[in-house]
Amino acid sequence: MTHTLAVLVENNPGVLARVAGLFSRRGFNIDSLAVGRTEDPSVSRMTIVVEGDDRYLEQVNKQLHKLVDVIKISDITRDAYVDRELVLIKVHADASKRAEIMQLVDIFRARIVDVGLKTLTVEITGNEGKIDAFEDSLRPFGIKELVRTGKIAMLRGTKSSSKNNSQKEGDVN
């Protein structure tokens, strides 16, 4: 099962290396990881997507907790949440294909952010399914370059995973 973790960490140098190093040395696989500052500049938030069963996730969780720089971990997988990913795609587009590509861009509510002599650069945000579908539909034209930010996620409604909401989650006693 795929799990989405919202991890609050202190915005210290090296914190990304600590988290990434932990995943690699314990043999945990990261599907995606996105990191950036939060409303509190001393705190960063990582959205980590990992694949594994409950027992595996329990170890991931507990090992992450042991890092002093990790403030709070929420596994939001089973809650209602909004997730987004931003993707830039540079696609081959000579004059004969441009109209067709621009139509696809409209259908998917993507945006053209740059126009080259023989390429178009398109920006799209959305959830994984939408982005995958868009990528598939552009593939026949020839994708020159593609970059994804990795997923970021937030709980729906008034619930939040932010620092002052609660303490580090209790241990699985």
């Binding site: 027992r55 329990e58 170890q59 507990k62 090992q63 907790h65 042991k66 241990d171 699985v172 006693n173």
Partner: peptide, 17 residues
């Protein structure tokens, strides 16, 4: 005292951290 030790190698019936 270390929650990460619970269930790391063996399944435990009653953990106490």
């Amino acid at each position: 005292i270390d929650p990460a030790e619970i269930g790391k190698n063996v399944r435990v019936d009653i953990p106490i951290v």
